[in-house]
Structures are given as structure tokens and as C-alpha cells.
Nucleic acid binder design. Structure first.
Length: 637
RNA sequence: GACUUUGUAGUUCAAUGGAUAGAAUAGAAGUUUCCUAAACUUUUGAUGCAGGUUCGAUUCCUGCCAGAGUCACCA
């Protein structure tokens, strides 16, 4: 028997080879559809009969019986079959399944394509701003990106993990300005630094970004108050007119509309603040490489990077290559200017550069401001081109970025295409949904942002408390306890965030983040630890003769041999959730088996060894698949 | 308002167009003389509404209702 070719594949080949005998005509391969055999019915493999009914010109039952008889004749691993409505359920011999188990046992990379056998793919994830600490949303992003990279590797791709660091732009200038203006001086005359405050660098810079926002809003409020009092000195007449127009339009509108207009007035006032003007001036100076500004910028960014490094380490993610927007924006600008000459872009009267995408059903999009500075889009164009320069063999870039930027990427890829880059078609936006809290959306203004460092520490502490409660920490060294709690806590958190379809918006309930029961990371880790203990106690697995399999054993083997196709599916869908759901199903099935079937005390040595080997391979697949979602498994817990 | 997207048990999630829509959790009732009870068993409970395509629709199409996102010289 050929164990390399699955039973489904064998059936498929027989049906195709014999289609003229069986159906009187060549059949389309797509008609051959398998599906999972339902628990209630007898059988291991199910072939859908409906598609063949037309060709055979008989009832689904008759068709099923005809195909079943034919297959049984050809394949001796088919023990029997049964036709239920339009489904042909085939029962396969135990020996076939045991052969399958043995082939898993001897394959150290079971389920994986051979490494680097496929094209090179770049996966971008994380890509934070350098003015705010990482939060819960970044956790989903990082875990997702890392996991997709691992899944693609398992599919044989060479993967370059990357991120682009948004280290420039008006937002950076905001925190720089706020630090210069508002940081208190200590007795040595120094402003606040990570060293003299003990604050993590990203947290310190984040503090000043918030401070900017606060002062900025206060100033805008003052301006509005002035306007409302009829004080329009020092303001250009166009602004004054706009304000009056907006104020008048509030008349007779409902509450919601008035709020919208008030927001517009606020934006108007914000543009008139000294703070924003200063920030803008700073950006212009920065782009002109003003040495003083550059030094400040370097210093503060380094604080942030140090802070981020700590967070990435806790997350267990890493990168092969970093891109900095401060490096790529110039290239982006050059490309835009080149595109302007080629007529891809156009210039408005005030000197700003745009692209007209109205023919493609999109809007006009800004690429260079009237003061000549670049925007987000310009930088992204530069970064993409830079990447293809660095990696000429790249077959695609996957951008792991939230779905709020769906439009941005649609525009970006279209612009790249219009600029004549053929690889633009291979860029893919891995768009994921936002993470909601039970209280609703995370809002920094309302202080409902869940900080990444805090959350990770929290789940680790909680894992420690729960493990200690069960008395499972006895006799362990302090280091081992720390490692175990981190494994469990982070495993719970990662699994929680990755088990949901990435595309969907999800709910994060902090109280449930480290549940131990049900569809959770620790539930799976526990099963792994239990198998590990079982194997250790067994004293080794001997070879065994083929026996008649129990239902539980057969089901597990069937699920185990699905693993390679699960990895393929996860790769195709860019979805760690496919992996997570598979592991959970496998573990649930194993737990049922473990509960119902004796192993170490089994007297029949063939049965005992088979069960041990089965368990061992379940643990092998658990470890391998958990690694694909970035989760470690403990030997004991 | 336009465009995009999502609506499945009380709650959080599943379901390449396929059989009686699966789990988890919460609720109810059980299992420890045997390998880790962080386990297992039993049980209650759902496809937003109205049409259409199909042998067959949670899935595809249309309309409506509800939520979310985007529509910046922010990133």
C-alpha cells in the first residue's frame, strides 16, 4: 500500500482514470468533493454524490451504490460502505490508518513543505508610531503578523519579517515640541529622560505626545472662545468668514449635526494654534536636516526603540529587516516628482501634488503638501520600492495593518500600478479587525487604552496565581516557575487573540483573557503536558502489530493526517485562526480518548504501544501547530 | 450622505454551496479505587428581516433594518 498517497487522493485518481467506464464520459475533477463524515453515520471518508447524479442519470442512492461498489472492488483498504441520501460513506480498514500513523511518526517535519522550497515573501507587521507605547491593538497585529510569517514558512516560503518604523512626520514633532516646552527641569537642570525618571522610553515619549494634545486642545478652546466673543484680531479674514458661516449653519439643526459643525469649528481653531504652527515649522526644519532638531529627534527616537525592544521581546516577535520612514520618504518624494513629469500626478495652484483616481471610482489623493513635505502615502510608495530594490526575488509583500486603512492600501497599490510597477499586483493588505473592549472601543482620550506591557504582565501574574492555587509549582526552581508562568500567560493571551478570524472585529474581555477552561491556550498546553508525563512514565514505545482500532483512536488518526492540509489552508487564508481551531479540535478529541481508553495499564502490548505512539504524535502536532501561532508549550504544568 | 464591512444560542467564537448549523462559556445534573480533574459525561439554548438563484443557502444576488470603519495638506 502506498502510504504517501492519502485515501482521498487514491479515490480521486481511480474516479478520474475510470470516469469513462463509470460515468460514460470524462468528468470534471472539481466534481469530486470530499467532506468530513458526520459522527452519527458509519464511515471514515465521505464522497458527495450529488455532482455525479446528472451524468449517471439515476437517483443519488443508486449512483452512490454504483460508485461504492466500484471503489470497493478497486481499493482493498475499503472495508465497507453505506449510502445515506446523497453521500457515500466509506469505511476504511484499521491497517490503513495504522500505516498512516506510522508515516507521521517517521516524518520529523510532518505537515510542513520543505523549507525555502517556494518563493520569498515579505511580511510586514507591527509598524508602530514612535510617539505612543504599544497597546492591545498592536498585540493582535504583532501576533498575527508573526504567526502568518511562520505559517508561510511552513508552507515552504522563504519569509522576510519586516516593519516600517514611522519615525518621522508631524506626529513626532508634536512629542518633540511638547518635551521641549513642557518637561520640567530637575535640580541638575535636565529635562525628563528615561534615565532620570526610570520610565520606559516609549512611555516617556508617549506622555509628551499626550501632553501636546492636551495643551493643543486647550489653546484651540481659547481661540474658539475669542471668536465667540467677536474678537477676530490676528486672524485672516478667510478663517473668520469660515467660522461665521459654520456658526450660522448651526441654526435649526439637530444635536448630532450641531456636534459635527462644532468639530469643524474646532479643526479650524486647531489650525490657528501656535503649537501646531510650531510643530509644522519643526517638521519643515527636520526635513531640511536642521542639526539641532535632528539631534533631539535621534535622542527621543532612541528612547522609544529601547522601550519597544523590551516589549517585542516579551511578545516573542522579531524582525529580519527594519525600514525607517526617515530613510524612505526621500525616495518616495523622488518617485512622486518623477511621476509628476510622466504625467501620472498633477500639481495644483498652491504647489501641492495630487493623483486623480476618480476614473477608478476613488477620489483625488494628496502626495506632496504645498510646503513640499511628504505625507503617509508618499512614504509608503518609497518604502515599497525600496523593498523590491533590496529583495529582487520577492514574490509579494503582505501588509499586516488594521482594516481602518483599507482605503489607504487600495489607493497605494493602485498608485504603484499606475507608476508602472508590475509587482504592485502582488502586494496584499492583510486587513484585520479592531479589538473592542466590553466597554466599547479603546479611546486614548478616555483612558481606556489597554497598554501592551501592562496586559502581558497581568496575564503572566494571573497564570502564576492560578498555577500556584493548584499546587503545580511545588519543587520547581524560581526560574522554572517564571518560565512556566510566562509560557502559560502569554500562551493564553496569544491564543485568545489569534483564535478569531483575523478579518473580523473582535471582543477582548480582560477577565477572560487567561481562562483555563474551554477553547483556550492553557487547555491545549495542559493536554501537551499530560501527554509528556504519560510518555515519560511509559518507559519507551515498542513496535507493535496492527490491531483493530477503537473508534476514538481512528478519529484521532484521521484528524492528525489532516494537519498538512490545515497548514495549506491557513497559508492560503493568511489565518492563524484556522490553525487554532484545528488544535482545539484535536485536543478535545484526544482528551476524550485519554479519558475513555486506558493506556499504561492496558495489558495488550500492541494496543498499549499503539496508544502511546498515537499520544506521542498528538503531542508532536500540538507542539508544531502551537509554534505556528507563536505559542510555546510546557513539559509540565 | 457615499463607499467598505459585520449581523449565528444569554455571551464569545465555528461552519471550501451540502446531511439534523458545531464549539466554548454561563445555567442544570454527574464522573477521582487508572496514566496530571487546568480533564471527562449528560442537558437547556441561535442563522436580523423580506425576496431571488439552486436538487440544496449561514454561505451567492437584491432590498430593508442595525452596528462598525473610511471619506484630512493626520499617521
Amino acid at each position: 500500500m502506498n502510504t504517501k498517497v492519502s485515501i482521498n487522493e487514491q479515490i480521486r485518481l481511480i474516479l478520474i482514470e475510470n470516469s469513462e467506464v463509470l460515468f460514460g464520459t470524462k468528468i470534471n475533477e472539481n466534481l469530486i468533493q470530499f467532506q468530513k463524515t458526520r459522527k452519527e453515520v458509519e464511515g471514515d471518508v465521505t464522497l458527495v454524490i450529488f455532482p455525479f447524479v446528472k451524468a449517471l442519470k439515476c437517483s443519488p442512492i443508486e449512483a452512490g451504490n454504483k460508485i461504492g461498489d466500484f471503489l470497493k472492488e478497486k481499493l482493498n483498504s475499503i472495508a465497507s460502505f453505506e449510502v445515506v441520501s446523497g453521500f457515500l460513506n466509506l469505511s476504511i480498514n484499521s491497517s490503513y490508518w495504522i500505516e498512516q500513523l506510522k508515516s507521521i511518526e517517521v516524518d520529523p517535519l510532518f505537515g510542513f513543505e520543505s523549507p525555502n522550497s517556494k518563493s520569498t515573501v515579505m511580511v510586514e507587521y507591527s509598524s508602530p508610531n514612535t510617539n505612543k507605547p504599544l497597546h492591545l491593538g498592536h498585540l493582535r497585529n504583532n501576533f498575527l503578523g508573526y504567526s502568518v510569517a511562520e505559517i508561510l514558512k511552513a508552507n515552504g516560503h522563504k519569509v522576510v519579517k519586516t516593519q516600517v518604523i514611522n519615525d518621522r512626520g508631524i506626529h513626532i514633532c508634536k512629542s518633540m515640541l511638547a518635551w521641549e516646552k513642557f518637561s520640567p527641569l530637575n535640580d541638575k537642570g535636565e529635562r525628563e529622560t528615561p534615565e532620570n525618571t526610570g520610565l520606559k522610553g516609549d512611555k516617556l515619549v508617549g506622555k509628551y505626545y499626550v501632553e501636546f494634545d492636551k495643551q493643543f486642545n486647550a489653546e484651540a478652546k481659547e481661540i474658539i472662545a475669542q471668536w465667540e466673543n467677536g474678537d477676530f484680531a490676528n486672524f485672516p479674514s478667510s478663517i473668520v468668514e469660515e467660522f461665521k458661516k459654520l456658526t450660522d449653519s448651526k441654526e435649526g439643526k439637530d444635536e448630532k449635526a450641531v456636534k459635527g459643525i462644532d468639530d469643524k469649528i474646532k479643526d479650524l481653531a486647531k489650525n490657528e494654534t501656535t503649537l501646531l504652527r510650531e510643530a509644522k515649522e519643526m517638521l519643515v526644519k527636520w526635513e531640511a536636516r536642521d542639526p539641532q532638531i535632528y539631534l533631539l529627534w535621534t535622542t527621543m527616537n532612541n528612547w522609544v526603540y529601547k522601550g519597544f525592544d523590551v516589549t517585542y521581546k516579551s511578545m516573542g516577535v522579531d524582525f529580519d529587516k527594519l525600514y525607517y520612514e526617515s530613510d524612505t520618504f526621500i525616495l518616495g518624494k523622488d518617485i512622486v516628482i518623477e511621476g509628476l513629469q510622466k504625467g501620472v500626478f498633477f500639481k495644483k495652484e498652491d504647489g501641492s501634488v495630487w493623483i486623480d483616481l476618480t476614473e477608478d471610482g476613488l477620489d483625488e489623493k494628496l502626495l506632496l503638501r504645498s510646503d513640499g513635505t511628504t505625507v503617509y502615502m508618499t512614504q509608503d510608495i518609497g518604502t515599497a520600492v525600496d523593498r523590491y530594490k533590496d529583495y529582487s526575488d520577492l514574490s509579494g509583500i503582505i501588509y499586516t495593518v488594521g482594516n481602518e486603512q483599507d482605503y489607504h492600501f487600495k489607493v497605494l497599490f493602485l498608485i504603484l500600478k499606475k507608476l508602472g510597477y508590475s509587482w504592485a499586483d502582488n502586494c496584499f493588505h492583510l486587513s484585520y479587525g479592531m479589538v473592542d473592549l466590553p466597554s466599547g472601543k479603546m479611546k486614548s482620550r478616555e483612558g481606556t487604552v489597554v497598554d501592551a506591557d501592562d496586559l502581558m504582565q497581568e496575564v503572566i501574574d494571573k497564570a502564576g496565581a492560578l498555577t500556584a492555587e493548584r499546587g503545580h509549582l511545588e519543587g520547581m526552581s524560581k526560574d522554572d516557575v517564571n518560565t512556566l508562568c510566562t509560557t502559560i500567560g502569554m500562551g493564553g493571551l496569544k491564543y485568545y487573540l489569534l483564535k478569531v478570524d483575523p478579518k473580523k472585529r473582535m471582543m477582548f474581555n480582560p477577565d477572560e483573557s487567561i481562562e483555563l477552561n474551554g477553547n483556550t491556550g492553557p487547555f491545549i498546553q495542559y493536554a501537551y503536558a499530560r501527554i509528556n508525563s504519560l510518555i515519560n512514565r511509559s518507559g519507551g514505545i515498542q513496535s507493535y502489530n496492527s490491531i483493530e482500532l477503537k473508534e476514538e483512536e481512528r478519529e484521532i488518526i484521521k484528524l492528525l493526517i489532516d494537519y498538512p492540509s490545515v497548514i495549506k489552508e491557513a497559508g492560503k487564508m493568511y489565518s492563524p485562526a484556522v490553525i487554532a481551531n484545528y488544535i482545539f479540535e484535536l485536543v478535545k478529541l484526544f482528551n476524550q480518548f485519554y479519558q475513555a481508553v486506558p493506556i499504561l495499564i492496558e495489558e495488550n502490548q500492541d494496543a498499549k504501544n499503539l496508544r502511546l505512539e498515537l499520544s506521542k504524535n498528538v503531542s508532536k502536532v500540538i507542539k508544531s501547530s502551537m509554534a505556528l501561532i507563536g505559542v510555546d508549550v510546557p513539559d509540565r504544568m
